[in-house]
Write a protein that binds this DNA or RNA. Structure first.
Length: 555
RNA sequence: AGAGGGUUAGUGUAGCGGUAUCACGACGGGUUCUGGUCCCGUUAACAAAGGUUCGAAUCCUUUACCCUCUGCCA
């Protein structure tokens, strides 16, 4: 991990012996949605730091709001953290495990005269809170006797009040310039079944109360969270001091923002529930499960998290960096194969009708240990429609009438004839091949300007390929009030008649490979079947020709 | 003067009083049976103004701009 301000703090603490050299962090998600790449940043930070400093990192579910949380989310979060490559060992915790202790802390706070039961309505409390510039006013119930508060809180716990009838509040300062400190609520009544404690409780601690005390109970040393909790730190410190308990150190860092997508749980939930995507694991989603299904590897995501760094300033990370990370990883690891997305039939006129032969192809030029494979060649082939132009512009090096190109690992072929349908669309090419160029090299040393990928028509396997693009059409969709209006209408394009080399027929779900000259693709883990192959495009290869085309268009 | 944070190339990030780092991107070139990879090069930044100092991105002051906070969400 490169240097960052949090590491500096930890290193200082190691020097001064602040926590006796211990480093204990935690990743504390609320199980009310799926994890996304912003969480990946936090996971890599918390687990990464604990590994680097020989400490530990706990996984704690912050499950204090039973109305929004459920077990499906708990399970998906565990799966995602594990998939990211991190291990919480035996340290799997739930805030709900501490409900009894938290309740005892609340009682103690009342006994110390630091909390009271307020029977104002939510509306009244809001009105009495004041504003950013004006102080609030004390609740009429603020100075209830200790015994009365104790009795009322007991009754809250026993279910004698309706939801909203009252709350337990910290007795701090209604005039505090920090609004968080104006007697914040600590406990509220929720007559809701909790996914772990069932109907055992009808009062639930607020995040601010539960979170800092959970950190304290667990002996967390460095409690890392995002910037929006900076204002809350004063309250955590107050609670911990009022109770005179172990005091972790909270450090805030900037949350991740990624261009062309959204990373707020609220917005992601809206996309899922509004059917803008097919689910939490839609390959266009920035969720960990979406990225996984898309074909991103844990290594690439971890690498990305390392490169974006950790700081306090708000930022917007280029999506291109994530793409760079997956290309870099897959370039080393992915098998090369040939697949044609938009097939154009090619007949090699001088190739024997019933002949076919096996060509040797390299699986990965970056790693010769990955070996070679045989690819069948025959008289009728498919090449990419984009690889032929009847009237090629400058700098188009691929096939055209009368041109010679190399078919990768096979032969040099020359286009001799172009066949069109009645609308003028090119539907077939006639070519001749040079038998002396078998394998792809010309004995006379002549060169061609381009090498094309291809598949043999009779041997090819059919596949569906889904081409993905950015979910949003603008860099900062979050800036828009109606963020859904900026969804990219062409974020997915489905191609049904793709042709891939026969070896892919038995590809396992999740397998990632490079379709040469096109990009990285993976077998969809949800929809692909042996008789119905489905590939997701993870990312395109960097594409010089695409850039040249763009430049030519602007000229 | 409501409080708390922040501001370094297009983007992200390092720097902790002594030549402004690295990565991505963009642009140009070389190698190449992938217009991929790889290699080489170019581009481009300390928000502003004062002050302290032999010397300031770094310390001090002022200003500007940005973010967060008025849930019985987290």
């Amino acid at each position: 991990m490169p240097p960052n301000f949090i590491r500096h703090i930890i290193e200082d603490d190691m020097q001064t012996g602040k926590y006796d050299g211990r480093v204990v962090t935690r990743f504390p998600p609320e199980p009310n949605g799926y994890l996304h790449i912003g969480h990946a940043k936090s996971i890599c930070l918390n687990f990464g730091l604990s590994i680097e400093y020989n400490g530990s990192c706990y996984l704690r579910f912050d499950d204090t709001n039973p109305g929004k949380e459920n077990i499906e989310f708990v399970n998906s979060i565990k799966e995602d953290v594990r998939w990211m490559g991190f291990n919480w060992d035996e340290h799997l915790y739930f805030t709900s495990d501490y409900f009894e202790r938290l309740y005892a802390y609340a009682v103690e706070l009342i006994e110390r005269g630091n909390a009271y039961v307020d029977t104002q309505s939510a509306e009244e409390i809001r009105q009495n809170r004041g504003s950013l510039k004006a102080p609030g006013t004390d609740s009429p119930y603020r100075n209830r006797a200790k015994e009365e508060n104790l009795e009322l809180f007991q009754k809250m716990k026993d279910g004698e009040f309706e939801e909203g009838a009252c709350v337990l509040r910290a007795k701090i300062d209604m005039g505090s310039p920090n609004i968080i400190m104006r007697d914040p609520a600590l406990y509220r009544i929720r007559k809701h079944r909790h996914h772990r404690t069932n109907d055992q409780w009808c009062i639930y601690p607020m995040y601010d109360f539960a979170h800092c005390l959970s950190d304290s109970i667990e002996g967390i040393t460095h409690s890392l969270c995002t910037l929006e909790f900076e204002n809350n730190r004063e309250l955590y410190d107050w609670i911990l001091d009022a109770l005179d308990v172990y005091h972790p150190q909270q450090i805030e860092f900037a949350r991740l923002n990624l261009s062309y997508t959204v990373l707020s749980k609220r917005k992601l939930i809206e996309l899922v529930e509004g059917d803008a995507v097919s689910g939490w694991d839609d390959p266009r989603m920035p969720t960990i499960s979406g990225l996984r299904r898309r074909g991103y590897t844990p290594e690439s995501i971890r690498n990305f998290c390392e490169r974006i760094g950790v700081a306090k300033r708000d930022s917007l990370v280029d999506f291109a960096l994530l793409e760079h990370c997956i290309r870099e990883d897959l370039n080393k690891k992915a098998h090369r194969v040939m697949g044609v997305l938009n097939p154009l039939r090619v007949v090699i006129e001088n190739y024997p009708e019933d002949q076919s032969e096996e060509m040797d192809a390299i699986n990965n030029p970056e790693d010769k240990a990955m070996g070679t494979r045989k690819v069948p060649f025959s008289k009728v082939l498919y090449i990419e429609q984009d690889d032929f132009m009847e009237d090629p512009p400058k700098k188009f090096f691929r096939l055209g009438p009368g041109r010679e190109v190399r078919l990768r690992y096979a032969y040099f072929v020359t286009c001799t004839n172009v066949i069109k349908d009645e609308t003028g669309k090119v539907i077939e090419l006639r070519c001749t091949y040079d038998p002396a160029t078998r394998g792809g090299d010309a004995p006379d040393g002549r060169k061609v300007k381009s090498t094309l990928h291809w598949v043999s028509a009779q041997h090819a396997v059919n596949a569906e390929v889904r081409l993905y693009d950015n979910l949003f059409a603008v860099e900062k969709p979050a800036a828009d009030d109606d963020f859904k209006a900026t969804l990219n209408e062409n974020s997915v394009q489905i191609l049904k008649d793709c042709k891939v080399e026969p070896g892919l027929g038995k590809a396992e779900p999740g397998l990632a490979c490079q379709f040469e000259r096109l990009g990285y693709f993976c077998v969809d883990s949800r929809d692909s079947a042996p008789d119905n192959l489905v590939f997701n495009r993870i990312v395109t290869l960097r594409d010089m020709w695409a850039k040249i085309k763009k430049q030519q268009k602007f000229k």
